[in-house]
Amino acid sequence: MKKQKSCLVALAMFASASAFADNAESLVFYGVQGKADNAVELTNFRKITFGENGFNVLSQDGSTLQLNYGDVKSIKFKDLVNGIQSVTNGNASEMMLHFDGQYVWADGANGQQGAVYSINGQQMIGARLDGSRISVESLPKGVYVFKAGGKSIKFAK
């Protein structure tokens, strides 16, 4: 029963995340061993129907993938693109902004003011940039903008 609920929660999350499907290649079903056991190309995906012991993934071509709740550990989009990309500069002497998952920093900032803003424009962190890294670990999950010297990069945490 617990596995059924877990699988239903995962499938509900999938249904609510269908807006992301435009940016992914396929829907991958991972088994209890953690291996990608089955995949359905999103261009061929039609719908999912639920039964007492499992669910069926129906494809546009008429084929059906039958899966038991207990055999599926997780469901993920393959090659999901979130639209947030790194910014690279062609000239090495120009200031470059960076994000590595835990810190933001600016090469070539030479004491300029920098700031991290939430996606709604609220300044979350402000600092004089001297080449050291600024921790963003305390920020909640979300999308942010790091600005300095007329340049900016978006990052997701």
Rank of each mutant, 00 (worst) to 15 (best):
K2E: 14
A15L: 12
V9Y: 05
E41V: 04
I153G: 09
D37A: 12
V104E: 09
K151D: 06
D22C: 15
K141S: 12
A12V: 02
Q66G: 01
T88H: 13
S26L: 05
R128Q: 13
E94F: 10
G126L: 05
K73L: 14
I84E: 05
G114V: 09
D71W: 11
I125H: 06
A156D: 05
Q123F: 06
H98T: 12
M124Q: 06
S135Q: 04
Y103L: 02
N44F: 00
G126N: 08
G83A: 05
D71V: 05
L8F: 15
M13Q: 15
Y69V: 04
S59Q: 12
M95S: 04
V9A: 12
S16H: 14
N23P: 00
G131S: 00
E41W: 00
K141V: 06
K47L: 08
G111H: 05
K3C: 02
K141E: 12
D61Y: 03
D37G: 01
A21P: 01
K154V: 09
D71P: 07
S86A: 11
A15F: 09
A148L: 06
S132R: 14
A19W: 15
Q123Y: 03
W105I: 11
F29N: 03
I48R: 13
S16V: 15
F99I: 08
N91A: 07
V116C: 03
V145P: 01
K141G: 02
F99W: 11
A17Q: 11
N38A: 11
I119P: 01
N110T: 08
V32Q: 14
K3D: 07
F55P: 11
D130M: 01
H98D: 08
G31W: 10
N91T: 04
K157A: 00
N68G: 03
V72M: 02
F29D: 03
Q123K: 15
S63Q: 08
L67N: 07
M1S: 15
F50R: 08
D100C: 03
M95V: 06
K47A: 14
I119N: 09
Y117R: 07
G101R: 03
G150Q: 07
V28H: 02
N38V: 00
Y117C: 08
N23G: 12
Q113W: 11
G111R: 09
V9S: 10
I84Q: 03
L11H: 01
M95R: 00
S132K: 06
F55Q: 09
D37V: 12
V87H: 09
N44R: 01
N68D: 03
F155I: 07
W105M: 04
A21N: 06
N91R: 08
K151P: 02
L65A: 07
L97N: 09
L58H: 13
Q122G: 14
F77G: 03
E137V: 04
S138A: 15
F99S: 04
V72C: 02
A21K: 14
F77R: 10
A36I: 02
M96A: 15
G54Q: 06
D61P: 04
K2G: 11
K73H: 03
F99P: 08
M13G: 05
